[in-house]
Design a binder for these strands. Structure first.
Lengths: 350, 350
DNA sequence: AGATCAGATGAAAGCGCTGTCAACATGAGG
DNA sequence: CCTCATGTTGACAGCGCTTTCATCTGATCT
């Protein structure tokens, strides 16, 4: 079966059956209004009878239009990217464009490989989740001749167009929020150690230092990918190290959920004994007990805007956006898991 | 920018710069061992200097090899498919194959569209998550001339090759497990209503009926996609309807987690007052409080095997597996969220 | 030394489709 | 009745690459 090449039906077969030339058959499919109703009908019938599927490869090669936009995300696992990809599809599909998404697994080397492969397929645009491309990747992208959109985060030096928000500011704001609640011993957990979470942590560090606090004793980090279980374990580790912990900011919601479970396991009241705030505001944050505070990130909107810009450039007027850097911001979502510094904690701290 | 066609560098440019013919340049890249060290060197230098990226379209068209395998999954959101896709990548990438994954969103119409598009790109194999293809889709797949692997579930009538486990048996086993624990008023929540979850529910229904129990009063279902919040809401709904509930089997872990949170919110002890078992055994089940029992499904293994078979057929000996239907089974993972029927509940039921 | 052969290279053909342009009807206008 | 738009259709070339297959070299054998 792997050696028999049954010679897929081609446009020529369809044309022959319909009794027209290949060009006409092509037009009947691609621009039906250019072909008389009679022939169009015959071609359509032939297509159906032969179960003809156009060879996109040949079509793309001849027309120099692939109808494909390349998308690189660092993870498919992460709930963050499902909203992101959904937005992309919502915009691209109705416009007849196909998103080709590949996963870089948070590895610059894989990203480079992926982009190189994708570029070979001649996408009409490239949408990247992230701003941290390697130098070689950047060069490829700069010379590929199609729009490149970097998302998820802001950069001062975009390859082409940039849509996002400041991860650092968001991390800062989350920490600041806990500080404003009166907390001082604020822990921070981060996993994976990708550049984006690193910048969130920088925000945490800056807020702490500005408040005259030393973040070191309350910090836990690991290169392992974040999971709920890891959140629980790392929280336990900080707790062992810094008993007087009053609040916790985690780099994402999975870690926050893990910490919350660990609190339940140990009988630590949330937010009575400990306030918790996560990051991303995934769906479960609103439904947990207590509901988790988090930092809402505009991931659907970032992707929607990115796809919209692509559409305008490749299918619309060709007009590029007025500005090549769009800040979509973020917001702190206050829920039951965070509260003011409790009397008990105040007493313990002195 | 959209109108300027800067004429990407082609193999001919590379060949010219290296002072060789296009064929030699092609060979230097594709089968280096066929070219003398000297010329190979010159070609490689030219490639680097020109930042040449081969046009995969042209390459695929000429060689009839795309190096791509088409993958259709119904969801990217669902934690289930991240393990699945990871396995696919783990096997395919090192073999030089690229997985092109598209999301059918649990819609047969989208699946048909997606497969039609994918087939136009001439994949070397097709891997499907699910067995419920529409008639037209089936016909396309049967005539496409490449291996087709249906996964996630077993069918008596595979298109080509089938790897999975019985969703119905798994649903039956989960319910049976609760029955064996002594529970009688066993609730069941299911969302999305896709064929796979329907068969899990059929297993539940059969187990209940075999035990002489009427499942109707304890059943809640909705076509909406399942979320943690939905799990909580639907659980609350059953509770209002059937106060004496002793146990709950949910169609997936997200719903189970929602139900667990709802129990915490209402002060219902788990498993003291209510046993809960989910489905899929996602990572968080082991870390929640109490840890959630679940049905572990071999999703990594299914994908790994599927990819392995693809590899063997398209890059290996071309040998197809001895059997075209592989059952990978499932297992009940017992954790803290399930326990025997409590004395209190026994009393209440009478 | 002449025949033989493996290895390296290039010329030509063509993968399946679409862009371009010429050819051909058709009916309107003069 | 002839000319000229208008609208359809087809011939041809070519997208960028790889796959024959022929050619040419230099080494090997007798």
């Amino acid at each position: 079966m792997s050696e028999t090449r049954p010679k897929r039906t081609t446009l020529a077969d369809v044309a022959a059956l319909a009794g027209v030339s290949a060009v006409t058959a092509s037009r009947a499919l691609r621009r039906p209004e250019m072909v008389s109703a009679d022939l169009r009908q015959r071609v359509e019938t032939a297509v159906r009878d032969l179960a003809y599927i156009p060879n996109q490869l040949a079509s793309a090669l001849a027309s120099a239009r692939t109808g494909m936009v390349a998308v690189v995300v660092p993870s498919l696992t992460n709930g963050v990217f499902s909203d992101y990809l959904r937005a992309l599809h919502d915009v691209l599909i109705p416009a007849g464009l196909q998103a080709m998404v590949v996963n870089s697994r948070y590895l610059p080397s894989e990203e480079e490989r992926a982009i190189s492969t994708l570029l070979g397929q001649h996408p009409e645009a490239v949408i990247l989740a992230g701003i941290d491309q390697s130098g070689r990747t950047r060069r490829l992208l700069e010379h590929c001749g199609v729009p490149v959109i970097q998302t998820m985060e802001l950069t001062d030096d975009p390859i082409d167009i940039n849509i996002g928000f400041s991860q650092r500011d968001a991390g800062y704001a989350a920490t600041r929020y806990l500080l404003d609640l009166g907390h001082r011993r604020i822990g921070h957990i981060r996993a994976r150690l990708d550049p984006r979470s690193r910048r969130r942590s920088e925000g945490y560090r800056r807020a702490m230092e500005e408040a005259g606090l030393d973040p070191t004793p309350y910090l836990a980090e690991t290169p392992r990918p974040s999971t709920v279980g890891l959140g629980a374990a790392m929280f336990a580790e900080i707790l062992a190290r810094a008993p007087g912990l009053e609040a916790l900011f985690t780099c994402n919601d999975d870690l926050a959920l893990g910490a919350l479970f660990e609190c339940q396991r140990r009988g630590i009241a949330v937010p009575g004994d400990l306030s918790i705030i996560g990051f991303n505001d995934l769906e479960f944050c609103a439904s947990s007990f207590p509901a988790l505070s988090s930092v809402a990130t505009p991931r659907y909107e970032m992707a929607r805007r990115a796809a919209g810009i692509v559409l305008e450039i490749v299918r619309g007027s060709g007009a590029r956006p007025a500005t090549n850097r769009i800040d979509l911001g973020f917001s702190i979502i206050q829920r039951a898991s965070t509260g003011p510094r409790a009397a008990a904690a105040v007493r313990a701290v002195g």
